[in-house]
Design a protein around this nucleic acid. Sequence first.
RNA 1: GUGGGUGUAGCUCAGUUGGUUAGAGCACCAGUUUGUGGCACUGGGGGUCGUGGGUUCGAUUCCCAUCACCCACCCCA
Length: 404
Amino acid sequence: MIQALRGMKDIMSPENERFVYIVDTASEIAKRYGYEYIETPLLEETALFKRSVGESSDIVGKEMYQFIDKGGHDVSLRPEGTAGIVRAFIQSKLDKKGGVHRFYYHGPMFRYERPQKGRLREFHQFGCESFGEDSVYEDFNIILMIKDIFDALGIGYSIKINSLGCPECMPGYREQLIEHLHDIKDGLCEDCNRRIETNPIRVLDCKNETCRTLLADSPVIVQNLCEACDSDFGTLTSMLDSHGIEYELDPKLVRGLDYYTRTAFEFVSGEIGAQSAIAGGGRYNRLVEFLGGKPTPAVGFALGIERIIELVKLPEKGRSGVYLGVMEPEAIGTILKIAHKKRAEERVYVEYKKRSLKAHLKAADRMGAKICAVIGEEELQNSEIWVKDLETKEERRVGVDRFE
RNA sequence: GUGGGUGUAGCUCAGUUGGUUAGAGCACCAGUUUGUGGCACUGGGGGUCGUGGGUUCGAUUCCCAUCACCCACCCCA
């Protein structure tokens, strides 16, 4: 038997309903915030991801589905959504056009990782990217939009925020942190020592007990921000406060992708195992320029559909649709005509096999139909159909032409 | 990439200290009611015991390999 590749899943019953509901709900809310749909290719030039996500990141360094195509081009399946959208934004010259452009998207992402709970090799994200708006109010509105989406889906979460500073203040802080880490490096674990070189801010996030105590008085980015970053971060927190949105200030919060500046945030769920981030994002004011466009401020986020699929509370749905069946094989032609007429406006299931009335009712009941309609011997003779409402239990016989 | 766990019916799992036809519950189909759903009872269909190799007279059971899934590290949505 040929089976799906490791870490790749078919989305079918029963999760398919939740999947579509998540995408529909998120899309609807994004549209209300002024976002329009964008679809970009799944396959892009590898260089795009190297330059945007960053070559030092694990995502690009070891997790990409990268290969040489038949034309000799180095290409990769997208490991995340932002890079392709920024590329499209620049390619269509919207950076030169100016103004604000907001996009939402959803689709599969690919990372060659070891699968575990909440982590697949092909997974699906819904995300938004806003270009051309430098105001921190846009950051706030994005957080508010994610909150709206999760609230609509009935998902519990907590919010973590941080500021990663800008080219003015981040490098200075980074130096200061590295210096501090070198002072205590002998007490730190193996992983931490490696991270001092690759991604020093990640060291702050180490789970090791002894590391944690040693790191307790490490310098923190939010206390080393330049004036502009500090003022923006203050505005953001006061906006959240005034809207009654609870959040945790997390100086250890680092985004895994290199392009982030200033605002960084994460939505976390306590109910889904170790991979607890259900949405993440932030501001990336440098990325458009990095990729060859005119400098354009931007902010965005993505949420992991598979990670929230179990948490979604689906709206209650009652019985709906029509079940049609026969007890005499000759009646099937009539049934099919009725089915086609009814399908103009509702869901219709047709059972082709001749069965007992009891069996038809049982089947109709099980599939959640509201109406069960059957043609038996007597109905066949009188050109009638027997109709029962499975909710009210009312039943009647009507002429085949008058069945509505 | 590292570590641990699990693969037996559509699903959840039992079982064989190695020995004829491998079981249960749920689900499915039928009947009890020759035309009345959700309940009950009775019967029925359905399994290369993940795959490949080894040991053995004999392997679903023991050994090895492999694949997949699950959980954690790492990383991240």
